[in-house]
């Protein structure tokens, strides 16, 4: 019985059948692009086949495949960021929202406005829609960094490693992404929902 399950488990077709959808969903969460997600799933299964003999069998098959997938995703993002390094973006003042939000003395050019009651606003259910629209407007690099940090839950150290940049540049990129998103949300979604009196 146990032997049988081992033999079945080495069948990559079986892996594809049992775990393909879950691996694909996981990859989509990180890569947001169906073609890349499909490719890393394929690479993961091929890599799994090569390293099967090293699989200790004390983790579940799904966990084992997912950990290979994570590495493949990190490799892919790492590779993309090498092809067009993030460092250039940090030097570049274009796409730096801080440039127009603060004056020369470092004070806010425009006062920060109060937002309305957050939960009431959330319930209007338009937050995600507005956010997606603002997120799509970010430069791809800011968007990648922000998404790895906020949605994939990588720590700042892991993020710097994946993107192959120094930790201060990593912080700068996240800072810019947050400023840009907040400004965008404010100019669209929050404008319609700002209420009096709550700051």
């Amino acid at each position: 019985m146990q032997k049988d399950s081992i033999l079945r488990a080495t069948d990559p077709d079986e892996w594809l059948e049992s775990h393909g959808d879950a691996l694909f969903r996981f990859a989509m969460k990180h890569l947001h692009d169906s073609a890349s997600a499909e490719d890393v799933v394929q690479e993961t299964l091929l890599a799994a086949l090569q390293t099967w003999d090293r699989f200790a069998g004390n983790a579940s098959e799904r966990t084992w495949l997912t950990s290979i997938l994570k590495h493949k995703i990190a490799d892919l993002i790492h590779k993309q960021s090498r092809e067009s390094p993030f460092e250039n973006d940090v030097q570049d003042s274009h796409g730096n929202p801080a440039a127009c939000l603060f004056d020369q003395r470092g004070e806010w050019v425009v006062p920060q406005r109060a937002w309305g009651d957050p939960d009431a606003m959330y319930e209007q259910n338009r937050f995600w829609e507005a956010f997606t629209c603002c997120y799509d407007g970010l430069s791809p690099k800011l968007a990648t960094a922000f998404s790895l940090r906020e949605f994939s839950g990588f720590s700042i150290d892991e993020l710097c490693e994946i993107l192959n940049i120094s930790s201060s540049n990593c912080s700068v990129i996240l800072y810019r992404a947050r400023l840009a998103l907040k400004a965008c949300l404010e100019s669209g979604w929050f404008d319609n929902t700002i209420r009096e009196g709550v700051s």
Partner: peptide, 29 residues
């Protein structure tokens, strides 16, 4: 949560994997 690996991609990946009828070189431990 119910998003699935697209059928064409599944088929493409299946083709890319070594077939299950003996051509595979990797053996189970």
């Amino acid at each position: 949560a119910d998003r699935q690996l697209p059928a064409e991609a599944r088929e493409r990946i299946r083709q890319a994997l070594p077939s299950s009828n003996g051509t595979r070189t990797t053996q189970p431990p």
